[in-house]
Design a protein around this nucleic acid. Structure first.
Lengths: 225, 225
DNA sequence: ACCTGAACACCGTTCAAGT
DNA sequence: ACCTGAACACCGTTCAAGT
């Protein structure tokens, strides 16, 4: 028992972790534009400026929230799986995380070399290596995989945001988009028009996984250069 | 000579097109956060609220700006090329457009079923069809291609934005990112660390094209299901 | 029909002042 | 060391009023 004990924090004491948790809850509840320092500080029963003692700025807050979501998704896969299966599993975990937290999909799709993206890169890169992809191609292969995953996340986030501001669910929103596509000119948009009617019935998750298989097949068929 | 002639507009008259052109110039000059109605109306020598007569809101303005950029990029490819070459050419055109206009990369990566994205979808989808991909796979194949392209655009936009706010050029920014990656823990980030040192020397364009080849190879190797 | 520009209801961020 | 909350410098958008 040392004389100087670490001062016990009150249950309500602020901390970076509590702030990030509250931010995630707020983002889930009110969407990307619902995250404001005023709303967040109210939720934390503190002053608006207090948060700045623990977090640099709004961008850092959003990245920290993304990082928490990504970390959970990426650490999920079982250790014994084969490399290709691990890639499938990490990819699906990220898809579902971004589906559950569309704001994360939107933020990650433009998160550059930031920590949450590095987490994804590492997780995929290790498996690309384990698959025996030659050194010279590991980078471009891993980035391609990641860009695809984040690209899907970004597009889905847009759909989710559209749905939110319409007050619709996903199917209704997709029906709306489908209607709009059917108005397009037949001659200049033949492909889009032909896809329009089946759009609301598509399984996003299955489409996403089909894209992963496409890339995995490309990786399997050798021919560097 | 009809008695009622269409009133000749003054050179300085506002129009949707002039507004969008000015917005693109402003975005190129000052980045995504530089586009404000105040700055734009000053550039157009008009009142802040006047723009709302021609454009619904800021999101519509940004989409219109993206659409102009995308339309130029997508209409470029020569008509006689083979489908796979056309895909390469459209993809590269989009890459370069998003490289020249990072704000477009950022906006498109989260643009859902909006018009500029439809333009890309159509352009890619027509070639996917021409390649003979079976009906059941045309959608997932085309979306995968597009998600990859937009994913890369989003990530590059983040790098460009980081560079802008640092006042650095791309190489300096990548050197900075590389340094940060070298600080990561060796045991948890072996892949990222091993890639860090060569990061600033990478050719983004070549990496992007390698990803397109990966997907094209996956498309070529049959095996539906 | 088209434009003006003040006004409104917000933002993120700072910072003197408190404990 | 940590927190408060008013203040600052912005935003997007609206709208009465003009031409």
């Amino acid at each position: 028992m040392p004389a100087t004990t670490v001062p016990q924090r009150r249950e309500s004491a602020l901390s970076r972790e509590r702030i990030v948790d509250a931010a995630i809850a707020l983002l889930d509840a009110t969407g990307e534009q619902g995250l404001t320092f005023r709303a967040l500080s109210e939720r934390l029963a503190t002053g608006a400026g207090a948060i700045y003692w623990h977090i640099d700025n709004k961008h850092a807050l959003l990245m920290a929230a993304c990082d928490a979501v990504v970390a959970r998704a990426v650490n999920a896969p079982a250790a014994e799986a084969k490399p290709a299966d691990k890639i499938r599993s990490v990819a699906l975990g990220l898809f579902e995380a971004m589906d559950a937290h569309p704001w994360a999909g939107a933020a990650l799709s433009r998160a550059g070399g930031q920590l949450p993206v590095v987490r994804i890169l590492e997780s995929l890169g290790q498996q690309v290596r384990a698959l025996g992809i030659p050194d010279a191609w590991q980078w471009s292969t891993t980035s391609a995989l990641m860009s695809y995953i984040l690209g899907v996340g970004g597009q889905n986030a847009a759909h989710a945001q559209l749905a939110r501001q319409q007050g619709f669910d996903r199917t209704d929103t997709m029906t709306e988009v489908s209607q709009a596509w059917l108005q397009l000119d037949q001659d200049t948009y033949p492909f889009t028009r032909s896809m329009a009617s089946s759009l609301p019935r598509h399984d996003d998750r299955a489409d996403f996984l089909a894209g992963i298989e496409l890339i995995l097949r490309g990786m399997a068929s050798q021919d560097p250069r």
